[in-house]
């Protein structure tokens, strides 16, 4: 039985009918066409689906869309302004932190949260801050460098 819900995503309000067990990830991707959040495991293990809900980075595969009602949801598509990349997106490109890129959007959303909570994290804090996001291509090296650079800027 579907329910009509209202979700606020990247400043836009969407009225959608969803199944009670629909995850926020599936609604973002399949109903709203916001494909930046990726399905990597659907079990809270990889972090590819990370988005912000009321200012907190969450695995959107582990949250029901119903429980995201009334909260402010930000996805990768909500970063940056007026056609310009967010500084974290920009440093990911410039530091070569993107390889296959499947983890990238989730990683950037986690990095945004990390830098919001601690604008000048040391390397230890960065590594622990992104430990919930897996990457199989980069060895995280340039990702850590990109976050350091974004913090310095």
């Amino acid at each position: 039985m579907k329910q009509l819900i209202s979700l606020e995503v990247n400043g836009d309000t969407h009225e959608i009918a969803v199944e009670a067990d629909a995850t926020l990830l599936s609604v973002l991707r399949d109903n709203l066409g916001l494909i930046g959040a990726k399905r990597g495991c659907d079990s809270g293990g990889c972090g590819c689906c990370t988005v912000h809900v009321d200012g907190k980075a969450v695995y959107s595969c582990m949250m029901y869309a119903l429980s995201a009602q009334g909260q402010e949801i930000v996805t990768i598509e909500g970063l940056g302004t007026e056609g310009k990349l967010d500084p974290v997106q920009d440093t990911f490109v410039k530091e070569g932190a993107v390889q296959c890129g499947y983890c990238t959007c989730g990683m950037i959303m986690t990095a945004k949260q990390l830098l919001h909570d601690d604008p000048h994290p040391d390397e230890h804090a960065i590594r622990h801050g992104i430990a919930g996001n897996l990457c199989r291509c980069t060895g995280y090296h340039k990702i850590v460098e990109a976050i350091k650079t974004a913090a310095d800027n």
């Binding site: 494909i35 930046g36 990726k38 598509e77 990349l85 490109v93 070569g96 499947y102 990238t104 959007c105």
Partner: peptide, 21 residues
Amino acid sequence: KRVLRQDAYEKVVGGKGFPVN
């Protein structure tokens, strides 16, 4: 030369070209 990857610009904003999409 350490040129920037062309696909990185697309991947940091969503990556619509992935087969999964």
